[in-house]
Design a protein around this nucleic acid. Structure first.
Lengths: 132, 132
DNA sequence: ATACTAGTTGCAAATCATTTGCATTTATGA
DNA sequence: TCATAAATGCAAATGATTTGCAACTAGTAT
């Protein structure tokens, strides 16, 4: 984590390292509140969590995940994958599908108004078997 | 619009009709504030706009579009398509790509924990030629 | 090791999109 | 035309996120 931060020009502070560790261990994307709850070092302020998540997602370290919730969720960029979200119970399942990535990468060169496309977001929504 | 509403069991009120008209004419997804600004009938309250957008997206009339902004954007479900968003100037371009839809529809049957997947969201982010 | 400096953080207060309670109004079916 | 559930307006509340500013600290140069 230290190297990841320094490589992007960030100072490797305890807050950033712990927040990245938390996101790295998490199976699901997390929002600021959830990250804050998992932090053990109680000297870290919630504002710092917001600022860290926001600033690290401006570089390519973190990625915003749209779960259609009222708050913003994040995951490590290198854990990037797509999800299915249950609109009832909020269950999140990962999708691994090579074909998707192939097609998505082709689209990256098909726009007339955009030179380069940096990232994409793709999520699915439905009702899980448990809820239905 | 009246029929669309009634078909889903909604009362066809002036507010709903005007809001759907606005979304139908719009080339871009709109948030509550933008919809409200376009409303000519000044008897319609902004709260009603919020409630209308929220309730119509619970049925399959409207669709939430994730633009990575601080507010929630909507578009008519039947106008459903994907977008490229410029993270600098907020330019939104539509994507028409049949291959994408083919692949996406295949994924819909590949989940172990989900019986049926109702919808998906797919957006791309980058810097448009103008901004770069 | 020590000092410097820009980048970070904590705290409290401010913002701002969105939601809610409740009284009033209205669309629709009988 | 009437009854009634659904929809709306208004004002106040909520809650996530942001901001100003003073105090702190990681990384670098000395």
């Amino acid at each position: 984590m230290r190297n990841l931060l320094k490589g992007k020009g960030y100072k490797a502070t305890p807050a950033r390292i712990e927040i990245l560790d938390i996101l790295n261990k998490s199976k699901k994307p997390l929002n600021a509140e959830l990250v804050y709850q998992k932090i053990k070092n109680k000297n870290i302020n919630k504002t710092t969590v917001y600022r860290t998540l926001s600033s690290l997602s401006e570089s390519e370290i973190l990625k915003i995940v749209d779960l259609h919730k009222d708050s913003v969720f994040f995951e490590l960029q290198n854990k990037h994958h797509h999800h299915i979200i249950c609109t009832d119970c909020d269950l999140v399942e990962d999708i691994e599908n090579i074909e998707v990535e192939k097609v998505l990468s082709k689209i990256k060169i098909s726009s007339s108004k955009f030179k380069n496309i940096k990232e994409h977001s793709l999520e699915f929504f439905g009702i899980c078997k448990e809820c239905s």
